[in-house]
Computed example of a mutant assay.
Amino acid sequence: MQIKNLGSEKTTAENSDIIAIQQADGVTCHITRENFLGNVGGATSAQKYIQLSETFPSGSKGGSAPVNAWSARKLNTIKTDDTGTVVLDSSTGVFLLPAGIYYINATSNFYAVGEVKLRLQNITTNSTLLIGSNGYCSYNDNSYTDMQLRGRFTVASGESLALQYYCRVGGSIYNLGTTVQDGSSETWTIVDLSKIS
């Protein structure tokens, strides 16, 4: 294989695992085919994907929200777990991840709860790892909102986590999720996690 404009002295055999790359200053460097292909697009083999959700049968209602206190979304489903080691308590929504650094992108549905926000809470250490922005869905206008939480965090082995919410108004069976009744599952919260390292 010959890299364009490198000249015949800078060629490699067709089946070689070494790729010659010429930098802007004319210096030729070599990289293994495995490292080159492994980093195309910024992908890393260490990254693992996890998706948790709060999912119930068609026609289910999310229930009334407790007010003026942090409460856990009832995550109850592991949809994807590339690590093969996530543990989820479906009765409480508390989950355990392998130790590491993660990026989270969580979305949670609310109805007529007034002021609302999300946070990622480390239950084991009683510390807040991430806190989301403020949101509002009017209880006078019967409005809905999707709250989001994004960010990077680190977790140690054996630490329990929960996606929690805080809202100011309750009293509706739809506060924590509406019902579409299309025959598919009702999903009110989705938590996407990428294990960076």
Rank of each mutant, 00 (worst) to 15 (best):
M1G: 10
G7C: 00
Q22M: 13
V180N: 12
W188Q: 01
G41C: 03
T189P: 09
T124M: 04
N76R: 12
S133Q: 09
Q51W: 06
E159W: 09
G62Q: 08
K48E: 09
R168G: 04
E159R: 05
G84N: 05
N134F: 01
Y139R: 01
K79D: 01
G93T: 02
T80M: 10
Y139P: 03
E159P: 07
S138F: 08
N39D: 07
N68A: 02
S53V: 11
T145Q: 11
L6C: 08
D17M: 07
N15I: 04
V67T: 09
K117I: 02
S184W: 10
D192T: 11
Q2H: 11
G93K: 09
L118H: 02
N109L: 08
T55M: 05
T125R: 15
Q22S: 07
R152Q: 15
G183Y: 14
T80N: 11
S16T: 10
V94G: 03
S160P: 00
A43T: 14
V169Q: 00
N68R: 04
W188N: 05
I190V: 14
V169D: 06
G38D: 11
K74T: 10
Y49M: 04
P57E: 00
A43E: 08
K10V: 07
N126S: 14
S184Q: 10
S16D: 14
L88W: 15
L129V: 09
E186F: 13
N126Q: 13
I31R: 10
L193Y: 11
N5W: 07
E115W: 07
L130G: 01
A156Y: 07
T128W: 00
G59D: 07
T189V: 13
F153S: 02
G62P: 05
Y166L: 08
I19Y: 08
G114L: 03
F110S: 07
W70H: 05
N76W: 13
G158Y: 15
K117R: 13
L52W: 10
A46V: 10
T11E: 13
L129F: 09
T107F: 01
A112N: 12
S64M: 11
F110W: 03
D82N: 10
R33N: 07
I131T: 15
A112R: 12
V191S: 02
G63W: 08
Y136H: 08
Q2P: 06
G93W: 12
F153Y: 03
I21S: 04
L120H: 03
I104Q: 06
N35M: 11
Q47N: 11
S172N: 10
T83K: 12
H30C: 03
Q22N: 05
A43C: 09
S160C: 01
A24F: 13
K79G: 02
N68W: 08
L161R: 10
I173K: 04
Y103N: 15
D81I: 13
N175M: 11
G135Y: 12
I123K: 09
S8M: 12
T107A: 06
N109G: 02
A65L: 07
